[in-house]
């Protein structure tokens, strides 16, 4: 890979007490690419995501953002760098509308009042730039949206803030076929706009459809970091379950 990674982690170790969860993990996110992060339950995916997001601090290891070494001490630091996480249990308020949710916690003000006009215009702009066509009105309450639409709003919320890296935790886990379709299209469009996208998923079909690179975690170690076109579904499944597949993967476990 010739381009500089947007975000790079090198030699990340993380333990919870006696349990060593992440072993010397190297992980890179490239602009304009979807990097899939796969691994079985307990492989350390969530821990890695939370480490990237600044919720956990790593024990050892270095992080680089756009080639520069950075320190991330909390979620605030990660957000300031332009790293946004869309969590599995969508962090949306049902009783607020789409615009209100997208600007929640970062409302634009005009004097003492909320600047509803600018917020609505920018929310619409962002949704339009992502070619979101399924929302009836940006002023409808989130409670009335389908699972796919809610996921769309959550993702659009992360894009609104000119973020550079978006981490999506199982975005299609609870969705039907058509809605999965929408969300995957959206994931692709994010990358096409130049963002670095990390897709955490159990669904190999989804991964092979949108991901440019696949990083496999096996028991807290990176088993392989490969281009999607170089591997087959079977190989990835073997990497997930056994940590190795032919000459790919961990040398000996």
């Amino acid at each position: 890979m010739t381009t500089t990674p947007l975000l790079e982690l090198r030699g990340i170790n993380k333990s919870f007490g006696a349990v060593h969860v992440l072993h010397d993990v190297d992980f890179a996110v490239y602009p304009g690419q979807v990097t899939a992060l796969v691994g079985d339950n307990g492989a350390g995916k969530s821990t890695l995501v939370k480490t990237i997001a600044g919720i956990y601090s790593a024990d050892t290891g270095q992080r680089y953002f756009e080639g520069e070494p950075v320190d991330i001490h909390g979620p605030r630091d990660a957000a300031d760098l332009g790293i946004e996480v869309v969590y599995q249990d969508l962090a949306l308020c049902d009783n607020l509308d789409i615009v209100e949710n997208m600007f929640l916690g970062r409302e634009l003000m005009k004097g003492p009042q909320l600047d509803e006009a600018t917020m609505e215009a920018r929310a619409r702009e962002t949704l339009a730039s992502l070619s979101v066509r399924t929302v009836k009105s940006v002023r409808q309450s989130v409670a009335s949206l389908s699972g796919g639409q809610r996921q769309t709003v959550a993702i659009a919320k992360s894009v609104l803030w000119n973020s550079k890296v978006v981490l999506l935790d199982e975005p299609t886990a609870a969705l039907g076929v058509a809605q999965t379709r929408q969300v995957l299209d959206l994931v692709r469009r994010l990358a096409d706009q130049g963002l670095g996208v990390v897709l955490i998923s159990h669904n190999m079909v989804d991964v092979f459809e949108v991901a440019d690179r696949i990083t496999t975690l096996y028991l807290g170690r990176v088993a392989a970091d490969v281009a999607t076109k170089d591997v087959t579904n079977t190989q990835v499944v073997e990497l997930i379950t056994a940590g190795r597949s032919g000459d790919l993967g961990l040398a000996s476990v």
Binding site: S131, R133, T134, S146, Q149, Q182, Q193
Partner: peptide, 16 residues
């Protein structure tokens, strides 16, 4: 709820 139009939209059709 979801309209059918999105399902047929090719992924490379980027709305910029």
């Amino acid at each position: 709820m979801t309209t059918s139009s999105t399902g047929t939209q090719p992924a490379q059709n980027v709305g910029s």
